[in-house]
């Protein structure tokens, strides 16, 4: 399937792309556009104004996708807190990782294109997921 989002991806779009590839559509193909009007007819838009899979009622797009596709994995919701704070910084959650992830994504967007950002951040989110999966199982920070 094809998925479309705004060019110049940052934390929320990179995390959504990872979530889509890992949990919704392993064959996902991403299109980056500058204007919502340029979204191809066969592509599902996300993290764009007017799209269903976008910010809603104070949620970031990552949280919206979790709700919309009923992904109730608590580890994904833990990552959602980090993505939410890195993206919106509204202090709804206590997510100390957010500041670091935000800076890493902003820096990456300065040195590579959107395709490459998704390539690099794939393992980054895989690692965050694994860390928090183990933390949840152990009930404390894993070594």
């Amino acid at each position: 399937m094809r998925w479309a989002t705004r060019a110049g991806v940052h934390i929320d779009r990179a995390a959504c792309a990872w979530l889509i590839r890992r949990h919704l559509d392993a064959e996902a193909e991403f299109v980056f556009v500058d204007d919502p009007a340029l979204v191809p007819a066969d592509a599902t838009p996300f993290d764009m104004r007017g799209a269903e899979l976008s910010h809603h009622g104070g949620d970031c797009s990552f949280e919206t996708i979790l709700r919309r596709y009923e992904l109730d994995d608590p580890v994904l919701w833990k990552l959602a807190e980090i993505v939410h704070e890195a993206d919106l910084d509204d202090e709804r959650f206590d997510a100390p990782e957010a500041a670091g992830v935000d800076v890493i994504l902003r820096g990456l967007s300065m040195i590579c294109d959107d395709e490459r950002v998704l390539e690099i951040t794939g393992p980054l989110f895989d690692g965050l997921y694994e860390f928090h999966r183990r933390a949840l199982l152990l009930g404390r920070e894993p070594a």
């Binding site: 104004r49 976008s54 809603h56 009622g57 104070g58």
Partner: peptide, 17 residues
């Protein structure tokens, strides 16, 4: 700038909702 643009866009969206 890119960040303020995005933030205002989302707030505009939220006001619409």
């Amino acid at each position: 700038d890119a960040r303020t643009r995005e933030q205002l866009d989302w707030i505009a969206e939220e006001i619409g909702e």
